[in-house]
Structure formats: structure tokens, C-alpha cells
Nucleic acid binder design. Structure first.
Lengths: 314, 314
DNA sequence: CGCGACGCTGCTCATATGAGCAGAATCGCA
DNA sequence: TGCGATTCTGCTCATATGAGCAGCGTCGCG
């Protein structure tokens, strides 16, 4: 397109999109045939001069979702729009809402849903409507009894999801990470705990998030790990954690000893699930989102636009 | 529009604008008639959920231009888009380009064009094409021999506009502001100077900018005023200057004594011109732009989107 | 200078879309 | 509950738009 046509296409676009003139009227104004106007508008679009945004908290980016499915091999992807977002927490809320919407629309409705816990999962539980399902049983897939915070946020999440879905929750009564391997093995061999994990293994779907490998991690907040521990994990290549297990950028466990002291489904058990919905958003989680997708931990990803574009274009 | 319809309208908009589906196809996908889809899309637009931007350095905002004409009584207005602008200087460049475009398209072509000088006018002169007019005579309308900077930027501006327009420039060989009233009167009574000012009074069109009343003012840079002087002017209510004359928010001269020492057209003489094109953009000039428009100093305004919106919505 | 190839123009025709309207459904109020 | 008022729905019809195509001009190359 030469200079003159480029300028004309902009003038035409202004009249078409801002003034709602017909292509015929624009032709008269610019002394062009209406066909020429149509072609100029097509060129303007094709050259990317026209940007159309949908400004709404529930808006999604379907073309990006398609690319995630096609280029990253996901079964499904939900990408919320970042258009007009004020701050990071708004993006979290939008993503949580989208995850809740996805769960609600999910067919067939899972009879047993395995869930992790954390800030993201809690948000999702809050965004779910009462009656989002009828009779969903929720089971925790990793340990989550908090050590120093008000106990029960993990439990509250699972219970809320279950109650609003007209079912009941099965809690995993255990800390996330134990200090000694022996303790972990003892807890794991407990009848109740073993039963819960067994139930978790057989869930129809998993819903989980991932945490960043930095000092904002919920594991530090909960007292399972110290700043020091996280620094060491990062040194070993950790980009974040999934169900309490720290992984590197390829999705491999970075510290097998630590992993052995972590209660809940293993990553391979998680990966064996038929439907694995990961909900991951925010700048800090770009790297771990990539690792989760790369290693096939999730089959469905709910995320924000910026994270999605990071996964696609680096 | 209730919650359900709002959500549906967003889904429809995604399919329509991002996936290029027809309303009929969307109807099938969402189990709606195509008429319902059309109505949902109309509602989405009307509620402002759909934003269409034209991303191009030459893009203008026609609806805002119309409002400026209608609500601020301008004969014409040119508003450049701020969409996708990286920094302040890009906005200046866009505005200067728009002013150059406006001059080039101006009919009838003015035989004599009165110009002020400054950063903005210089930019315009650079953006004009060679041969933008044939035989335009340019005359300076205010004094502009710089005291401490390389002399001639003012002259270079007028000369460039004239040369590219196939005409010649008449310079006003005088400083902008004199220290003593007597000196000013002496210079003004000089045959040559008086002749130039007389020619300036009879120009077919004026092209000028305005400066902010702050320490970035070109009058400080040129040595006509000190930081102290400007502070005093601001105290007296100055919002900026036009052709070297400082005005308050109603367009009145704030310091008559200073004004009397300023060489060039008076504001009333400027206001008497048949076509008065002001080119004003940038955050710092919002107040002075308002004063210029409010007091009828310009009949045509070339500006940026943010400044225009400031003039319209405060 | 001649000739083929390419791109651009203005058209016809098919399709997509918006305006307007009559009947159906819903609402509000007694 | 009944009834008028209002909104909503699905339609017809007019219009706007995009696809495709033949003719023209222009360009590059021999």
C-alpha cells in the first residue's frame, strides 16, 4: 500500500468507524468509488490499523485461546481480556470468574472434583454461584493445613466449592510439607489420609493453580518454607510449584528430597487425570505457567491475556 | 439489559469481532435467532463495551472535532488521536504533522500567512512538504530574535515555511520583549519594523502556537524572561503566552506593562484576522489552550485528543 | 518498441445486516 | 385474577457489504 492509499484508508476508517457513514457516502466525500472505499477499509484492517477491543470484565480473547489449543496442544483454553484492567487484583478476579464460569458450564459435570488450594482457588470458590452444579463431591489433592495462619482457608475453599455445587467435601487432614520424611510416611499410611488420596486419584477432574517461586509464595506465608528454602529452590531452577511440588521450567521436580516430604498427589498422578484444569494468572506466574503447559500437567488452562501471549510468543 | 443478556452480548461480540462469524452463525452457536444476535451486538456497542480505535500516526478523532466546533464555537478543529502514542514528543510530532496537513489542504491558499515561532512552529515547518503551496508569503507576527540561543530558529521557521511553499519570508527583525518601553517604541517606529507589522496585520491567515506559563517556556530559554518573572506572571493568573503575550484563563493580558514592551501584533489585532489557526498540544498547555479558545484568539484549533477532551469535559 | 504479466478498477451478483412492524409474552397495578 | 401497557420476538423488506470477474492500464523485460 503506498503512502497516499494508506492515508486514504485512515480517512475512510475514521468516517466508517467513528462517523458511521456508509462506504458509499465515504466514497462521495473522498471522491472514490464505493468499491475502492471497501478495499481501503479491508487494507486498513489487514494492516492492523483498526483495533477492536471488547471492554468487559467477562470478555475473552478467542483467537488467543485457539492459538493456545493449536500451538501448545491444550484441550481447551480460556483467556480473559486485559483490556481496561486497572490493577493486578482485577486480573486475578477476572481469571477466577472465568474459571468459575468454565466449571459451571462443564459437561459432563464431574462427580468427583479434585482441588488444590491457595489464593486463586479461594477466589474461584467465591466466584462460583450457588447451585453451579448439583452434587459435586470435592476432594483435596494436596495437604493444606496451615501452620501459622488461621487454619482452614484451604478447607474453606474446598467446602465452599462443594456446598455451592450441592455436594460435600473430602478434606486431606495433613500439612502440605513435612519436616521429616518419616513423619510424611506416617501420615500417608494413616487410613483416613490414604483413603482421601486414593479418592483424589480417582477424581473425574482436577482444578488447581500454581504458585510462583518467590517470597510471595503461599508456602512461605503458611510457614512450610522459609525465604532461604525458596532461594535455594530458585537456585536449583525452580520456577514455581504445583500442588506444593516445585518444578523447573521443564516441569521436573527440582528437589526430590523435598518432594518426598510433600503430601498429596504426585505430579505423575496429577498428569494421569482425565481433565486437568489449571488456573494461572499474573506476571509473576508466567514462568510456572509455561512449565505447567510444557510438561502436560494441565489439559485446560484458564489464564490472562498477558500470560497467554507469554506462552505463545515468549 | 439484564445480566444474562449482557454476558450473551459479550459472547456474541467475541464471535463477531474476533472470530469474524456472521450473526447467523453466532445465533446457531449460542442458540439464538440472528435477530437477537443483531440486537445484542447493537446493545454491546451502545453500552460502550465495544471500542474501535484507529492506530495510525495520522489518525484523527472526528467526533471530538465535531464537539469542539459545536460546543466551543470553532470554525474548524483538528484532533489527532492519542491511540498507541509512546511519549510526549510523538504527540507533538503528530500534532505538527496534522497542522502541516491542514495548511496544505487549506483552500483558498492564503497569499500572506502570518506566523509566530517556537518549538511547535518549527516542527510544523519541518513536516511541511516541498511545494505544499505555490507562492505563499510568510510574515512573522511577533518579535523573535533570540538573545542567547543560536539566533535564527525563529527566522529559520518562517523561511522554511515560505520556501517550501514557493514564496518568500518577511522577518520581524526585533527581540520579542524589550527591557524598556522606550526601546520598544523606538524599534516599533523603525520604518522596516513598522512595515512588517503592517504587513502582518493584513495577512490572510495566522498560524501560531501558545506556550505554557512555566519554567519550560521558550521565553526563559531565549533569555527574555527569568524564572522569577514567570513565577510572578503565574501569581497574577497567567496560564501561558500567545505571540509572546501572557494571558490569564479568560484570555486577558495579565501584565499590561510587560505587554507594552512586547513587539508584534497585539492580541486584538490577532483576533481580528479572518483565519486564525492555533496549534497547541501537550499536557502542560491544557490551560492555555482553554484560554485561547475561550477568548476567541483562534478560529481553528489543531490539538491532541487529551487536550481536546480537557477543553470539552474539563 | 512490442508483448506478456501483473495489478488495479468498476462492475454483477450473492449475502449479511439493519429498520420497521405485527403479534406474543410479560409486567404492573387494581 | 384480570386487563392495559410495555417489552420482546420473529418476521419482511430495503440496504450495505463482500466475493468474484472481465477489461484496462502499467510495468518490466527482451
Amino acid at each position: 500500500m503506498d503512502e497516499t492509499d494508506e492515508l486514504l484508508s485512515i480517512r475512510a476508517a475514521e468516517l466508517y468507524y467513528e462517523e458511521n457513514k456508509t462506504q458509499d457516502e465515504i466514497g462521495q466525500a473522498l471522491r472514490l468509488t464505493r468499491w475502492k472505499v471497501g478495499r481501503l477499509l479491508a487494507q486498513a484492517k489487514q494492516q492492523g490499523f483498526i483495533r477492536i477491543e471488547i471492554l468487559h470484565p467477562r470478555a475473552r480473547r478467542l483467537p488467543i485461546e485457539r492459538r493456545l489449543r493449536e500451538e501448545r496442544g491444550l484441550d481447551d483454553a480460556i483467556v480473559v481480556s486485559s483490556a481496561g484492567v486497572s490493577g493486578a487484583e482485577e486480573l486475578q478476579a477476572r481469571t477466577a470468574q472465568a474459571a468459575a464460569d468454565y466449571l459451571t458450564a462443564l459437561r459432563p459435570v464431574p462427580r468427583t472434583l479434585g482441588v488444590s488450594w491457595g489464593r486463586t482457588l479461594f477466589d474461584i470458590s467465591q466466584h462460583l454461584r450457588n447451585g453451579w452444579a448439583t452434587g459435586v463431591n470435592v476432594v483435596q489433592i494436596n495437604g493444606g493445613v496451615s501452620l501459622n495462619r488461621r487454619p482452614g482457608t484451604a478447607a474453606a475453599t474446598a467446602v465452599a466449592i462443594a456446598q455451592k455445587g450441592g455436594g460435600s467435601a473430602t478434606l486431606l487432614p495433613s500439612p502440605a510439607i513435612l519436616e521429616h520424611l518419616a513423619t510424611k510416611e506416617a501420615i500417608e499410611s494413616d487410613r483416613v489420609v490414604a483413603g482421601v488420596i486414593e479418592l483424589a486419584r480417582s477424581a473425574d477432574a482436577y482444578l488447581f493453580s500454581a504458585g510462583p517461586a518467590d517470597h510471595t509464595s503461599v508456602h512461605i506465608e503458611s510457614g512450610y518454607l522459609g525465604d532461604r528454602d525458596v532461594d535455594l529452590l530458585v537456585q536449583k531452577g525452580a520456577v514455581g510449584d504445583v500442588v506444593g511440588r516445585y518444578i523447573d521450567s521443564d516441569g521436573n521436580i527440582v528437589d526430590p528430597a523435598l518432594d518426598a516430604r510433600t503430601i498429596g498427589l504426585t505430579l505423575d498422578e496429577l498428569r494421569a487425570g482425565p481433565l486437568r484444569i489449571a488456573v494461572i494468572s499474573g506476571r509473576a506466574k508466567h514462568a510456572v505457567a509455561d512449565a505447567v503447559v510444557r510438561s502436560g500437567l494441565c489439559s485446560v488452562l484458564v489464564t490472562d491475556e498477558a500470560t497467554a501471549l507469554h506462552l505463545l510468543d515468549g
